[in-house]
């Protein structure tokens, strides 16, 4: 007996976006699908990709991370090699948090030098994140755009700074991550603004702001689902791959607190906390995940089938 399954057909397709690699490296292509995630229907030419964060500046590491990535703190190039080499990260998210005035205030030229160093340490594709300080980033992005000798993605462009970030990216052939605070309409608005600047749609990723598990994950989940449904339904401004940075998972007390006896082992729990955040993002439709725990690269990649 055969049952007719009501499989939705979508008129739209997500733009395929490639994060270029250096010589000898493997570029990452995501997007290109015309169906919802995790289902054996429609076309999914590219599996979601899992990358790792490499960062400058101080970061207090929770127990689950101290033993794994702890030894590489302060050495972005070595960390980048380890992530891309041993831990299987398909791309790197290089956060220049250390340039923030409250995080040590490394100079803009230092930040640009770190970018150069990481790019020469590994051929893996790289997304470069700013420090989050508006005035510093206004100097940092142009410097990074110039310093990066191969194409990277700049993260992120938002309504306040998009002319500057996208302008720097355009001038040197980089891509951008378009950011909005958990709001589908603002996500679309950002992409329309980028399109008005003539920014090519196949060099744009959407960062919908990823809340950590237990702390706003549900809003992110629904916004990703809505962005994806809109993109597949033909709204070209939202037909972009979605990038989720899982860093907020590590802000949860549940991921880091060793003192609660009834919560189980803090290492396993922290790892699970990030993994669960990532799985929810994948179920909603995320195409790129950035994690901190090395073992989650394999865990999440295993889940991220075509």
């Amino acid at each position: 007996m055969s049952v007719a399954l009501p499989i939705p057909g979508f008129p739209g397709r997500i733009f395929a976006v490639t994060l270029p690699a250096g010589p000898g490296g493997t570029p990452v292509t995501v997007g290109g699908q015309n169906a919802l995630p995790l289902l054996p229907e429609g076309e999914h030419p590219n599996a979601p990709a899992v990358g790792m964060e490499v960062r400058t500046g101080p970061l207090e590491l929770p127990p689950a991370l101290a033993g794994t990535i702890g030894p590489f703190a302060g050495n972005p190039a070595a960390m980048a090699r380890k992530c891309a080499g041993d831990w299987g990260a398909r791309f790197l998210f290089l956060s220049l948090a250390g340039c923030h005035p409250d995080a040590g205030g490394q100079s803009v030229s230092f930040g640009a030098a770190v970018v150069r160093e990481v790019l020469s340490a590994t051929p893996a594709p790289v997304i470069v994140g700013g420090c989050g300080d508006e005035e510093v980033d206004a100097l940092l992005f142009p410097a990074v755009a110039e310093a990066a000798l191969r194409p990277v993605f700049l993260s992120y462009a938002e309504e306040k700074n998009y002319r500057l970030v996208a302008g720097a990216a355009l001038a040197y052939g980089h891509g951008v991550v378009s950011w909005s605070p958990i709001d589908i309409n603002m996500a679309k608005q950002m992409n329309l603004l980028l399109a008005d600047l003539g920014f090519p749609p196949d060099r744009v990723l959407i960062d919908p702001l990823t809340g950590g598990l237990g702390y706003g994950m549900e809003y992110t989940f629904s916004i990703i689902e809505r962005i994806r449904l809109a993109g597949l339904s033909g709204d070209a401004a939202l037909a972009r791959p979605v990038l989720c940075h899982l860093g907020d998972a590590w802000k949860a007390r549940e991921a880091t607190d060793a003192s609660e006896g009834t919560w189980g082992d803090v290492d396993a729990r922290g790892r699970r906390w990030e993994e669960t955040t990532g799985l929810a993002c994948l179920a909603a439709g995320a195409d790129l995940l950035v994690c901190r725990h090395p073992s989650n690269v394999a865990r999440l990649s295993g889940a991220a089938w075509r």
């Binding site: 549900e218 189980g264 082992d265 396993a268 729990r269």
Partner: peptide, 23 residues
């Protein structure tokens, strides 16, 4: 293992809230 169940139950708690509540 609570290290498995706490994240799962938390995910469930998140996703089964009423999305019409303002953020």
């Amino acid at each position: 293992d609570p290290a498995d169940l706490l994240p799962l139950l938390t995910l469930r708690q998140n996703l089964f809230t009423d999305p019409q509540r303002p953020i």
